[in-house]
Computed example of a mutant assay.
Amino acid sequence: MKLSVAVHRARLGADEFRVVRPARPPARALLVDHDRYLGAYLDHTAALTVAGLWLLAARSPRSLIHLPLRANRPPAGAEPDGAGRYLDLVLLHHSLRFAPARWKQLRGRLGPGRPGTADLPEADHDAGTEPDFAARHHRENRDLFHQHLHAETLFMTGSAKVFRETARHFLDVAREGPVHAPLHPGRPHYCTELHTNDGVLGNAREIHIEYCDAWDAPGEA
Score class of each variant (00 low, 15 high):
L89I: 05
V173N: 02
P112T: 03
G82H: 04
A160N: 09
T45F: 14
N72V: 01
V32Y: 03
D172H: 10
L12A: 07
Y190A: 06
D43A: 04
I65M: 02
L56W: 00
A99N: 15
E130K: 12
F17A: 06
L91D: 00
I65C: 01
D81C: 13
H34F: 09
A71M: 11
V5Q: 06
E165V: 07
G158H: 04
A10V: 09
A46Y: 00
G84E: 01
A27R: 12
W54L: 04
F170G: 09
S63G: 04
R205A: 08
A78D: 08
L110E: 00
T153M: 04
H66M: 02
R175Q: 15
P75E: 03
A204Q: 03
A14M: 09
R73K: 14
R142D: 10
A78Q: 10
P112A: 03
R142L: 09
E130R: 14
H208F: 12
A23T: 01
P188H: 06
V162G: 02
F133N: 11
L53S: 00
W215C: 05
A78Y: 13
P178T: 00
D126R: 11
A160C: 09
V19N: 00
A174Y: 06
E16N: 09
E122M: 08
R139L: 13
P178W: 02
Q105Y: 14
A78S: 14
L120A: 06
D124W: 15
H148K: 13
F145S: 03
L92D: 03
L87Y: 08
A10E: 07
R62L: 06
L56D: 01
F98M: 05
T45H: 12
D15I: 07
H137M: 11
A47S: 02
K2L: 11
R187F: 10
F163A: 01
V50S: 07
D124L: 09
D81R: 12
D198A: 10
R70N: 08
F145Y: 11
P185R: 00
Y41I: 01
P100R: 12
V50T: 06
A174E: 04
A118G: 00
L55M: 11
L201W: 08
R205F: 10
T196C: 12
Y86V: 15
D119G: 11
L92T: 07
G52W: 05
W215T: 06
F155P: 00
A127D: 08
L201V: 11
P182D: 07
E193S: 13
F170C: 09
H150A: 15
L106S: 02
F145M: 02
P80F: 04
H66T: 02
E130F: 14
F17Q: 03
R28F: 14
V7W: 01
D119E: 15
D143I: 07
H208M: 14
R114A: 13
S60K: 03
D143Y: 07
T192I: 04
R11I: 01
G128E: 04
H34K: 15
L31R: 02
P68C: 02
